[in-house]
Design a protein around this nucleic acid. Structure first.
Lengths: 205, 205
DNA sequence: ATTCAATTTAATCAAACGATTAAAAAATTT
DNA sequence: AAATTTTTTAATCGTTTGATTAAATTGAAT
């Protein structure tokens, strides 16, 4: 109905300007606390144009949220279903992938998880393939190597060690008086620490 | 100015009714998405009375938030500064304390952490004693036992293993098709798993 | 029974917010 | 240059929201 049919360069640029601003504001404040006027201002344009392009706050948000969810899970799902890598390699890949991703996007997990809390229906709607994880190759490899250990328990610990520090980051930094540079260095070190630690965990019992 | 000077039984009960409702709604939806009218309704009374007791949404929220923060940190800080327990005992205490607390209050960490994101100033304002953690006995004990391991790295992993599953709970349950009962059982098992796993981690290198 | 506080009811305010509209202006295409 | 599209401007609409007020009602204490 409205006009951006011809996808010219200017069009793409404006649409992307709005999405860039929306990414920034939504991930910083969450859906409920975000004002469409603030997105427009951050994009350097007016509110009318925002609605002209995306019809509503909710539609714009869903676009951003789907992007973020894909970003968050695309560093996990391909790895745990890779038939060509060892268990150790998978652990190292998951660790490195998440620490790299979250070093560049520290706000990503908290954004997704808090919006899932506020609107579980949306997450349930867009999540396909129920047993993607339980049937994953990663899980099978774990069961073979350590039948005594529940693979999901191990996965939760691995993800907790990788992701939790970034969720906790502002609190942790304040409570331990850790600088931004120090924190980044710590996260780098974790890329080695976590694979070693998880190997030790798998040797237990 | 307003009247609840004589703290009768009815008074306390009403104030507590409002706070109960506020706890429920705030922790479920977060500050921004919470409507004071919804709190009043959940408390079974009217909006006027809510403002009569707590003056504003923000003041009521700060009361709840302080409660929640204390609840969240009071299972950690006393333990890591306990001079009378071993390192192993401290790890077991932290694990058991958090899993018990979060089984009863699964929404607690996400509530606190997402509100810290939305309003870091408040957290910084109410957090005293900067180096409480770096100087903790727990940290010293770790340094003695394993000088090669950064105690804060270890602490992050321990907390990640304890807390992260609850933050991830809705997503995890959906993606692994795990029932509520199954999840609770898993968290129970973690009370044994995590101390064993962290002991193995400390044996590395 | 009277007094005083607690609570409800209902109306209302001012501000914020998402969204829409029409018309002008600027930019791009033809 | 003319036509078309994109963007701005500015006003406005209908709701929602946090908050306040005054008057009525209820309940408990004196």
């Amino acid at each position: 109905m409205a006009g951006k049919q011809k996808a010219k360069l200017a069009d793409i640029s404006t649409e992307e300007k709005i999405k860039d601003a929306a990414r920034t504001v939504f991930t910083k404040k969450g859906y409920a606390a975000t004002r469409t006027r603030e997105i427009a201002e951050a994009a350097g344009l007016n509110l009318a144009l925002l609605n002209y392009y995306f019809r509503s706050k909710e539609k714009l948000f869903e676009i951003i949220m789907l992007e973020k969810m894909q970003k968050f899970f695309s560093v996990l799902l391909p790895v745990i279903n890779n038939p060509d890598t060892s268990l150790d390699k998978k652990v190292a890949d998951i660790t490195a992938n998440y620490i790299d991703l979250l070093t560049a996007n520290p706000e990503l997990p908290l954004f997704i998880l808090s919006e899932v809390r506020n609107n579980p229906e949306f997450f349930i709607r867009v999540t396909q393939k129920e047993n993607f994880i339980r049937d994953a190759i990663f899980v099978r490899q774990l069961q073979e190597k350590r039948p005594g250990i529940n693979p999901l328990q191990f996965l939760l610990s691995l993800l907790g060690m990788c992701i939790f520090p970034f969720i906790m980051k502002p609190v942790f930094r304040k409570m331990t008086d850790t600088s931004e540079a120090e924190f980044e260095q710590m996260m780098l070190e974790r890329k080695d620490l976590i694979p070693g630690w998880t190997r030790a965990m798998l040797r237990t019992k």
